[in-house]
């Protein structure tokens, strides 16, 4: 991480206005989540604060509600498959763009990043209309295509950033010493790309797992994801069962954050900060 030069000013110069605004920012970002945690342990049957008594009943209710369990399975499956496919398709494309000496490589690169500029709801509509209704592709097929398209820009950009740091001379040396292109890729290039691949995989899985717009439009029998099941539950009933699910997902996010920190660095992966 490149740090700005140290200030000559005393470190504790007061900036009351900035500090107040920054505290407000943190309260808005994190405050509501704290209340959700409290409500999840209520023994009452509505979203009420302060919670009425303590119980784990809503965790039990969440664990026995079929759409959440099925949704969790669907979400995990789609997120894993989309991440793997986006990397399997994206890494070769990254290699071609960075090492291929192609004419118009900037155009090709921008083409791979282009899905990001289209609102997710619009992408979802296009796929729903044209592939599902128009061509009759199954809901699960279109859901997987949509999520893969969603992740492709991240896969190409993040692994590309890793590859840009790698010295092509290493690969040329391997080739010069008699290694074939495949051996060179697996023995020289891939190890260099590993942090980028890890970062893209974590980012891709989280992005797909949490997505609502695509999953909402591309629904069919057996393709309801967990966030969509939660959204639909909240729209129809006012009991705190979704608070309990939220607490479970919050804990899972903490685990992902710790794993990400160990792998590559949490702020690097999710903040795109430093390289």
């Amino acid at each position: 991480m490149s740090r700005a030069g140290r200030s000559l000013r005393p470190a504790r110069e007061r900036r009351p206005v900035l500090t107040v605004l920054a505290v407000a920012a943190y309260l808005i970002m994190l405050g509501p989540a704290l209340f959700v945690v409290a409500v999840a342990f209520t023994s009452g049957s509505t979203i009420t604060f302060p919670p009425e008594g303590f119980s784990l009943r809503w965790f039990g209710a969440a664990a026995s509600y079929r759409p959440f369990l099925d949704g969790l399975g669907t979400s995990a499956l789609v997120a894993t498959a989309a991440t793997v496919i986006a990397l399997a398709v994206g890494i070769p494309a990254t290699l071609a763009v960075h090492r291929g000496r192609l004419p118009g490589r900037a155009v090709v690169q921008n083409l791979f990043l282009s899905p990001i500029v289209l609102p997710e709801l619009v992408l979802g509509l296009a796929l729903y209309q044209q592939l599902m209704v128009g061509l009759g592709v199954t809901a699960s097929g279109v859901l997987l295509i949509g999520h893969t398209i969603l992740l492709l820009p991240y896969a190409v950009r993040v692994t590309g950033a890793s590859l840009a740091l790698a010295d092509p001379a290493l690969e040329e040396a391997a080739r010069g010493l008699g290694a074939g292109p495949v051996t060179t890729f697996f023995r020289v290039t891939l190890p260099v790309l590993r942090p980028g691949i890890a970062a893209a995989a974590v980012l891709g899985f989280v992005t797909s797992f949490n997505n609502v717009p695509l999953s909402l439009l591309l629904q069919g029998p057996g393709t309801e994801t967990l966030p969509v099941a939660m959204l639909q539950y909240v729209q129809t009933s006012y009991d705190p069962v979704v608070a309990a699910v939220s607490v479970v997902l919050l804990l899972a996010a903490v685990v992902v954050a710790v794993v990400a920190e160990r792998l590559v660095g949490f702020n690097k992966i999710f903040g795109g900060i430093g390289s």
Binding site: A25, A33, F35, V206, N210, A243, V256, A257, G271
Partner: peptide, 22 residues
């Protein structure tokens, strides 16, 4: 900084749900 980025790991449904409580 990590705390500011952390909410990006949570689904919009989870993050918005907090406001129903507030």
């Amino acid at each position: 900084l990590a705390l500011a980025i952390f909410p990006l790991l949570l689904s919009n449904v989870v993050r918005t749900y907090g406001w129903l409580v507030v």
